[in-house]
Design a protein around this nucleic acid. Sequence first.
RNA 1: GGGGAGAUACCAGAGCGGUCAAAUGGGGCGGACUGUAAAUCCGCUGCUUCGGCUACGAAGGUUCGAAUCCUUCUCUCCCCA
Length: 427
Amino acid sequence: MNFVEELRWRGMLHDMMPGTEEQLNKGITSGYIGFDPTADSLHVGHLTQIMTLIHFQQAGHKPVVLVGGATGMVGDPSGKSEERNLLSEDALQHNLVAIQHQLQKFLDFDCGKNSAEMVNNYHWFKDFSFLDFIREVGKHITVNYMMAKDSVKRRLEGDAGMSFTEFSYQLVQGYDFYYLWKHKNCVLQMGGSDQWGNMVTGTELIRRKEAGTAFALTTQLIKKADGTKFGKTEGGNIWLDATKTSPYKFYQFWINISDEDAQSYIKIFTLKSQATIKELIDQHQQAPHLRILQKALADDITQRVHSTKDLEMAIQTSNFLFANGSLDFLSNASHHQVLDIFDGLPQFTIAREQIQSTINIIELLAEKTQIFSSKSEAKKMIQGGGIAIQRQKITDIDARVGLHELINERYLIVQKGKKNYFLITVA
RNA sequence: GGGGAGAUACCAGAGCGGUCAAAUGGGGCGGACUGUAAAUCCGCUGCUUCGGCUACGAAGGUUCGAAUCCUUCUCUCCCCA
């Protein structure tokens, strides 16, 4: 199966320029996707692009990963209703290094002629003077053409306006494409469907400057069936960086995907074959409550983004926290094992003297630890039946917790709601 | 430079001298139900030593009493030049 067919059956393909498929069928083709360093980690929203590159490489083509040291300094107006804040150069540099490191994990950079390659557009922009730029690039593209772009039009129609900097973004990205086309024989740019406009500016530049031919292919933006934004939870973005989103939370994110979404995500975010996926969907529909799809998804992605060990840990933690795992498990565990299970969950340590023999529950939750930021909040939560200690629901705001209740004489498991666990270690 | 409108809790947005810790909607959090789901229903959503305290852009003032009236300041938006 070729690259385009692969994307098509997986529901990832959005649009492509005429001739793209023919070009790819001609033989090994070099294509790129750009990532701007807007944060110091990629998040799950970037995974579609990463998967696209993986498929691209598996189909025998050469993926080029572009990190936007230069474009990151400008700010892409696509999909943004107002002007972005510029990041400082230090922050950009920090972000750049971090995401470069992450991207390296997903592709094979050493497999012969279709090895992946990483480039940074800062290299060709750093010595490109403003005058040279407007003569070499700006001259070929009319303002009329630029203003017709959706990302620009929407901003011109709105109240927020748009700075010249962001207006120029498409030229900067367009030049990237031209540069890669010229110097690396890169004839295809891929990206999310919101990038279409920017990508076309690139092919247009190549055509007008050198009468060259280049192609663009976009992937579907990931949507959730309920219309909310993919990749965001109450806690914010789901990052790929284990220190920003723990492997456990990452795993949980996928486990909690709705049935409907899981059926499309399994195709997008895993490399499983068409037959395997069909089988999984069948099984899932027969017994939806087992959430076979969500588990398959979560397993696959957690393993790829983190590691097999992280996945095992996440499953173990999930089983303990949700499958009503009894607390006996803890009494048999070593201190190290306990910490492993609670790794990535909020933890507090308090001194034994602080408790004396017993301590008021509210004082414990709001003062000795920062599980709640105020006593009223803790009180309200207890009255609302949202707090459990050692899996026992607390309903009395005057309840006291004593040393004799500690597991292994040192642990207190606090539950806020069903899903939020806190470990208090009494030292 | 001239004219106008406005600034209220996480967001949107009512209130326009006392009954206002502030309607309503959204969001968030919790409970019930459930599949760690969706939908639905219910509760909470400033702090507190439960006496109060601090809050409606900021600072002053009027008043027994101000989110509400007055003055100045800061900021935002709109129209004209």
